[in-house]
Design a protein around this nucleic acid. Structure first.
Length: 540
RNA sequence: GCCCCUGUAGCUCAGCUGGAUAGAGCAUCGGACUUCUAAUCCGAGGGUCACAGGUUCGAAUCCUGUCGGGGGUGCCA
């Protein structure tokens, strides 16, 4: 038994009752009440039916409950029209024992029908070190991928390497100008080229290495491999680095343009080829696929790239995380996927930007001007754990003001330490108990959860068994932030429990029960932090 | 102009596919270590959920409008 099954059982039971009593084919919502006094699950279905069946909510609720309850339920109370369900003790106890004896299985939810999903994120231009904006994307994208895997999907992470085009030319020109300057030759960096110091450092390194690799190739390799390193250090792994350059040579782009033409979605104007995007979404304007000089526009390449994800690589769903400056691009891409028959398979998520503040002044970041806060600096200053938690503990749509000074100062009070501390505390208790001859792993079957009668114990147990619901919900609403917020609240419950009740005490049976609860909490925190790519130290 | 995001405690933010008394962290003030980790806990103060209408048994949540903040609206990528 697990909580997801129990939840489904209640939902199904309710729909059956509604069908039996009123002949209505509804799928009622079964929610968790905020206040624990209202049980483990609650439904407001009586209110919703009141109008349809012309009865008072209270009597509807009573009618529904007046029958055999689902097996997992101890009791169903009707209060003010709500129906509140409480799980039976056996179910609760078996869920926790299951968790303790097979933590790895417990982490595999398999709640959804497995789909082949791609998450594309960061995809920064390889023109310099990754900045703090990419760090937010990295934290969110990698955590989303972890969450989707947890519920049973087959997930691939991808970084689109923009290794060709204007920005790359500018980078190359800037790099070669720096090399020439260092060699004492007259050279100027293009006005809108890359002026950052790092280009100078790379130029020195290039010259000193005496390599015969062309500067253009060398700088690209250099920057890409440094980006990879930074990302790995930030616990963000990409399964695929997809080269735009290679893709452009594959011939797929020509075939996409032909298909769009044969679908009648394109037209010629001013010597350019346009896509009639407004046909698919009246809010957007048509845009250019092939420029008047015969070059492919970025929009076209990206259409072909996304079509490739579905057609060549067979993804059922693709999540592409973009910054708000690509907002205009979202509707265009989605319209084009519709044209190609991939309705609703592509979901573009806009991750709001990070504003950098220095005191109260907003700092404009620009790679070209060389003003950036790099991901490496962030890692050095505040650490991976604190940085990831900081980025994850807000939803995607939230604009984020990042004051680096404040972040440094508050890294001590970042809630991540609060959560990690709860875990470390428990490890320490378990060790203490083990030294006294109470090794919880060997006594799981002896635990008597009915001994847990203190409110703090009951709250912890309730919250523990429900974490899978949080993970599932996060996977559905694509809200990675649900995990950190759960962990903060959850850790608070534990710290509170810890100060009020002694875990390892005189009474061996009670100690065992409390150790069982504590071990389950530690396991849950470990899972949650692991989803977030955050470490779980055993001592702090 | 049009489109997207956003406005909740002094600060940073949860809560938004409508539900029971609006939450957390930080900051402020007052308490708690002889005992498994005080990186902790307990308590207090702090709110016109931007504003105005509407829908509903019920609105921070949905709809309309107004105002404020951010972004987009390229034959750049």
């Amino acid at each position: 038994m697990n909580i997801i099954l129990a939840h489904n059982e209640i939902s199904n039971w309710l729909s059956n009752r509604i069908l039996q009593l009123y002949g209505l084919d509804d799928m009622p919502e079964v929610l968790e009440p905020e206040n624990p006094q209202f049980g483990d699950f609650t439904t407001n279905v009586a209110f919703q039916l009141a109008k349809k069946v012309h009865k008072a909510p209270l009597s509807i609720a009573e009618e529904i409950v007046n029958s055999d309850l689902p097996e997992c339920i101890k009791c169903a109370d009707v209060t003010a029209g709500y129906i509140n369900f409480s799980l039976s003790n056996d179910v609760i106890s078996s869920i926790i024992k299951n968790l303790l004896s097979n933590p790895d299985d417990w982490r595999k939810l398999h709640t959804e029908k497995a789909k082949k999903i791609q998450v594309e994120f960061v995809s920064a231009n390889p023109t310099g070190p990754l900045n703090i904006v990419s760090a937010r994307a990295a934290a969110v994208g990698s955590t989303m991928a972890n969450i989707l895997r947890s519920v049973g999907h087959n997930v691939t992470t991808e970084f689109l390497l923009n290794d060709t085009g204007n920005q790359i030319h500018l980078l190359d020109n800037s790099f070669e100008a720096r090399i020439a300057q260092i060699k004492g030759k007259e050279a100027t960096i293009p006005e809108n080229g890359y002026h950052g110091e790092y280009i100078k450092d790379y130029a020195v390194e290039y010259i000193e290495s005496g390599t015969d690799v062309k500067p253009e190739q060398w700088i690209l390799n250099k920057i890409t491999s440094e980006q990879k390193q930074s990302l790995e250090k930030f616990r963000t792994h990409f399964d695929v680095w997809f080269s735009e350059k290679k893709f452009r040579r594959s011939g797929k782009i020509d075939s996409i343009i032909q298909r769009l033409e044969s679908l009648g979605t394109t037209y010629e104007r001013d010597k350019a080829t346009w896509f009639a995007a407004s046909k698919f979404n009246s809010n957007i304007k048509d845009f250019v696929l092939i420029k008047s000089d015969g070059e492919w526009a970025y929009g076209l390449v990206d259409i072909a790239y996304h079509a490739n994800k579905f057609e060549e690589r067979g993804f059922d769903i693709v999540y592409t995380i973009l910054g708000p400056d690509h907002y205009g691009h979202r509707d265009r891409l989605e319209a084009s996927m519709k044209a190609l028959g991939h309705d609703d398979k592509l979901k573009i998520l806009i991750l709001q930007q990070v504003n950098i503040l220095e005191g109260s002044e907003k700092v404009k970041m620009s790679k070209r001007a060389g003003k950036i806060i790099t991901m490496d600096e962030l890692i050095d200053d505040v650490g991976v754990d604190a940085a990831r938690f900081f980025f994850l503990a807000r939803r995607m749509e939230a604009h984020l003001d990042f004051d680096l000074n404040l972040a440094r100062e508050t890294s001590d009070v970042n809630p991540v330490y609060y959560v990690q501390y709860a875990h470390a505390r428990i490890r320490s208790i378990l060790k203490f108990a083990e030294n006294k001859g109470l090794k919880i792993e060997k006594k799981i079957n002896d635990i008597k959860f009915e001994l847990a009668i203190e409110p703090e114990e009951i709250l912890l147990i309730r919250k523990t068994i429900k974490f899978p619901l949080v993970v599932r919900n996060a996977s559905i609403i694509l809200g990675a932030h649900l995990i950190p917020f759960f962990l903060i609240e959850y850790s608070k419950l534990f710290h509170n429990f810890y100060t009020k009740h002694r875990v390892v005490g005189e009474n061996r049976e009670l100690s065992l029960t409390r150790l069982g609860i504590s071990a389950a909490v530690a396991e849950t925190i470990r899972w949650g932090l692991c989803l977030c790519g955050i470490s779980t130290p055993n001592q702090m």
